[in-house]
Amino acid sequence: MRALLAAGLERALFHPLKLLPSETVTRIGAGLARGVVPRLYPHLQERAMATFRALRPDLDPEAATAESWGNIAASFAEMSRILRFWEEGRVEVVGEAHLRAARTAGPLLLAGLHLGNPEVLGLTLAKLGLRPVGVATRQPSDFREQVITDIRLRGGGRMIRADRGAGRPAIRVLEGRQETLLFWMDDYIGGVVRGPSLGRGPRTEGNIPYAVRLARLTGCAIVPGFVERLPGTRFRTHFLPPVALPPEGSLEEGAAALDAVVDAVVRERLTQWLFTISWRPG
Rank of each mutant, 00 (worst) to 15 (best):
E87F: 07
L5P: 05
A256V: 08
L44G: 03
G129A: 11
P16K: 05
H238I: 00
V193R: 01
A54S: 15
G176H: 02
L121T: 13
L115A: 14
R161H: 14
R47N: 15
A255M: 04
R100I: 10
T149W: 12
V192M: 02
T137I: 07
P169I: 05
R84L: 13
G254P: 01
R234F: 04
L181E: 00
G254V: 00
L99I: 04
G201T: 07
P61L: 09
A162H: 07
G134F: 13
A215Q: 02
G35H: 11
F235C: 03
D186S: 14
I222A: 01
L19P: 03
R172Y: 07
V93P: 00
D263N: 15
G191D: 14
R269M: 07
V192L: 02
P202N: 07
F85K: 07
L258V: 00
P224G: 03
D187P: 04
R100G: 02
T218D: 12
G254A: 02
E62K: 09
A111E: 00
D186V: 00
W184Q: 14
S141C: 15
G156K: 05
L32A: 01
G155W: 03
L274K: 06
P242Q: 08
D163Y: 11
R213Q: 09
A257C: 08
L128I: 06
L115Y: 08
A257G: 13
E179P: 01
R56S: 12
F275V: 08
A255I: 06
R90S: 08
L17Q: 04
E253V: 05
R194W: 00
S68H: 12
P42V: 04
P57Q: 09
G165Y: 10
T124Q: 00
A30Q: 13
A74Y: 04
R47S: 13
D259L: 10
A63R: 13
H98M: 12
L19Y: 05
I189N: 12
A162N: 08
L181G: 01
L123S: 10
E62N: 10
K127S: 08
W273D: 00
A74S: 11
R152N: 12
D259G: 13
L245I: 02
E88T: 11
T218C: 11
Q178G: 06
E252L: 09
G206V: 01
A12V: 08
G282S: 10
R177Y: 02
L128Y: 03
E62W: 03
A126D: 10
T24Y: 14
P209K: 04
G282C: 06
S197M: 05
L20I: 11
K18I: 04
A257R: 12
